[in-house]
Design a protein around this nucleic acid. Sequence first.
DNA 1: CAGCATCCTGCGTGATACTG
DNA 2: CAGTATCACGCAGGATGCTG
Lengths: 125, 125
Amino acid sequence: MAKAKSALTCGCPVAAFQKMISGKYKLRIVWDLKDGPRRYGEIRTGLLRGSDGSSEIAPRVLSRELKALTESGLIDRRDYGLVPPKVEYRLTRKGKSFVPVIAAIRDWGARHLAQANPVEMIAAE
Amino acid sequence: MAKAKSALTCGCPVAAFQKMISGKYKLRIVWDLKDGPRRYGEIRTGLLRGSDGSSEIAPRVLSRELKALTESGLIDRRDYGLVPPKVEYRLTRKGKSFVPVIAAIRDWGARHLAQANPVEMIAAE
DNA sequence: CAGCATCCTGCGTGATACTG
DNA sequence: CAGTATCACGCAGGATGCTG
């Protein structure tokens, strides 16, 4: 069995998953978007909060992550095409289906990675 | 709320998670180990099967992944200290608790990433 | 406001050779 | 068998400046 073995799916969804969420912000972006559409600047600001204070996020980086996520089909880009520009990103159906997975990751992380005080971290959001 | 904000935990388990499983093989190693202890060579061979045929895995790479996983507390290294060498890697309790998360990832990946034929991929293992 | 263009740097990854 | 040592490379990611 398991005749399907193309390079992308590679018989191992995990590899594809890793590629899809590679990058420091992709997971967090999807997570932040779970509450509804957000504008570019909002995402950017949201990522700074909670980050390890590593200055700012290069627009180039965020832009690429966003584009990658769009091409992955997790998020959708809506350009209102006006001046000043207004662009919103929102989760696609696929993206929404992915949220529980991130929740599982967060939950596990809160239990096993947070030596600090897990309770507060869970209550954090 | 959320007073805890060290760089490692960073108020965001996701970041720590990403660091922990960064690397192409870590997730797959943990997954392969879920069935029981495995020797270095077995892991190596196991990783080749299902990989995108990108030749072999550099020992240096596998070694580092294994060491990182050990330091993360996900796996445990047991050296039998004999000649020829025999070393087994097995999941720790923490590692075992992580398996369901990978399962969730695999499950989601099988449903949303496998354009080929998801049914066979699920049945694959 | 929401990006794109350019340069630069560190690290993850691969290949090869060697060792206890 | 289970690694370590060394070299090399590509790419993610940061910094800065500019644009429609």
